[in-house]
Design a protein around this nucleic acid. Structure first.
Lengths: 326, 326
DNA sequence: CTGGGGTCGGAAAAGCTTTTCCGTTGGCGG
DNA sequence: CCGCCAACGGAAAAGCTTTTCCGACCCCAG
């Protein structure tokens, strides 16, 4: 009933355990006949090496920890998906840890992960500001921050290029001949908000309209859009800080009798499908390519586990997904 | 630089490794003085037992696998959160695996998990139908299906009580004196759709209005609501199969000049906050308590790992979250 | 026919912890 | 003062794999 061990295989094949190991790992010098005999026994017993024992020997556990401060929210999900896809192809498992911004929980998780001898740590979160120093500096383990920041000089930080994404959106609006591009966005304490605003300001230049900050909600989108349309001159385009705000703006505009995109063009941010596709009209939106961010994190992590030292901050490009709102 | 081992502690405390183990695990008979001396050395060296080695000995790895067929979607997330919360309190890690309904990927993940000597498996998914037999019967490991079904007689299945949730919703409408309760829902091939319809039909009795099936989208909600309002007699309440449909219905009703809830009351399903709270008016909705489902899965899994045999199907109650649409 | 070299496979240690069994020591009672 | 028992701590094996080192055997050449 119990799983077969290398000893069972050795006995079945009439060889020693060392020979079985060599046959399985293509190491050492073995005759074809012996190798084949071992393989037959392996297949017959459905033998799978015990990774735990292998890890004990190699010092590598074949597992990494993913600490999320987002309660596995909608930003963490695609990142996780990309990360897991790459790492599982390398035979590396991903331990999920939900820290919910509680430093005590985070420390506890970290301790458990360390005890499990993990080979690396990935941290994601949705934070207004730079993370407070996490106690994972100098633990001699690869650390990657994805969609999250830190001051750890040895860590690698992977972020979407918020500024470039904003520029891309504004340039698309300019290419359509829009003359007055307003910016309706989220709370200013988010670094992403500041970066997107910077990109918008730089790209729109003298075509820049007003900028309005508020909460990340559809209600604010409706309210803000109404306020913008009350200004003179009126904007003929709105670049919104996320899709919820953009969707609210779309609703408010339609109900106030403005046509989207004819009177006002609208671009959102996040390309959150349930929002962007369900809006009327469906929203053109900047996609942060979070899945690709996770994939890249996985590739880098695999490299770092192999010994490569990587640090610094990398920003990956966004894409513009065009729909009917422009 | 490397992590301290039990041997380092033993040397530092001037005792044998066995003694250190006993001091740490509160086993055996040791004098207070010795125990204290060991503890001092443990603290000084920041020693953490290597779980891998412990696992090798005990046969338990302190890890379970979570296989999701939902690409870590919005249903898996809260389940995961509840599961992880309970299991991490037991020192058990959760390996995330994304199978995306691909049997080959699922088999590969399963093989990797087995090689990692996991102590149990949790499967979640969003499926129209009963899962095809997964190859995890008879592997002698605890298996729990959450929000997902199987024919494995040894497994435990945890589901929300769709039928009861629907009844709860309809009863709330009846209590308000509604006389004609329509049901606007998703594709009939989903078992959940059939169960919710059953609950609706039983609870509404002679007050039942029409039932309409369509896709899980806001657009269908708008279309379906319009169709229902064109019937005579008109319904004075709609129980919707999910919040997207309900939100679409709310939009269509408002735009057609019907007041919600005065003319027509509306209840959704899922209590998906970004939908339910952003709708106008905010939606009363049935919450499946998925987080609690995950928590329960965690508790059961912990029991099963300790050796308790549990199987069968358990349906956990839903709750009704009241907002302005009723 | 004998010795040497090459080829192949086995034995054993290492990696870290737990647990059982046993030996030692100290104290107390006779 | 001696012996026994209880209390305490140590030695070693087990759990499974990898890897290094070594030994044995065979074949070929001298």
């Amino acid at each position: 009933m119990k799983a077969a061990t290398i000893h069972d295989v050795a006995r079945a094949a009439g060889v020693s355990v060392g020979t079985v190991s060599k046959a399985l790992n293509q190491t050492g010098t073995l005759s074809q006949a012996t190798r084949a005999r071992v393989m037959v026994a392996v297949a017959a017993l459905k033998y799978r090496p015990n990774v735990l024992a292998k890890s004990l020997h190699s010092g590598l556990s074949g597992a990494v920890g993913l600490i999320s401060n987002d309660s596995f929210g909608r930003f963490t999900m695609p990142i996780m998906e990309g990360l897991e896809g790459v790492l599982s192809a390398h035979g590396i498992g991903v331990f999920m840890c939900n820290a919910t911004d509680d430093p005590a929980r985070e420390r506890e998780h970290l301790a458990q992960l360390m005890a499990k001898q993990i080979d690396g740590i990935v941290v994601t979160s949705r934070r207004a500001d730079r993370r407070p120093a996490v106690e994972l500096e100098g633990i001699g383990l690869p650390v990657i921050f994805v969609y999250s920041q830190s001051d750890d000089p040895e860590a690698l930080t992977l972020l979407p290029d918020d500024e470039g994404g904003a520029q891309m959106a504004v340039e698309a609006l300019l290419a359509q001949g829009r003359k007055r591009i307003a910016h309706l966005t989220g709370p200013e304490q988010f670094e992403a908000v500041r970066l997107r605003q910077k990109g918008w300001a730089e790209a729109s230049g003298d075509k820049a309209g007003a900028v309005l900050h508020g909460p990340w909600s559809e209600a604010w989108g409706r309210e803000g859009a109404a306020a913008l349309m009350a200004q003179t001159p009126r904007p003929d385009a709105m670049f919104c800080g996320n899709d919820q705000i953009a969707r609210g703006a779309a609703d408010a505009l339609r109900e106030a009798g403005f046509a989207v995109p004819d009177d006002v063009a609208l671009i959102g941010f996040d390309n959150w499908l349930v929002m962007a596709e369900a809006a009327r009209p469906p929203l053109t939106s900047v996609d942060m390519n979070l899945r690709e961010l996770g994939t890249e994190a996985g590739r880098r992590m695999a490299e770092m586990i192999r010994g490569t030292k990587i640090s610094g901050t990398v920003r990956l490009p966004c894409s513009l997904i065009r729909r009917q709102s422009t």
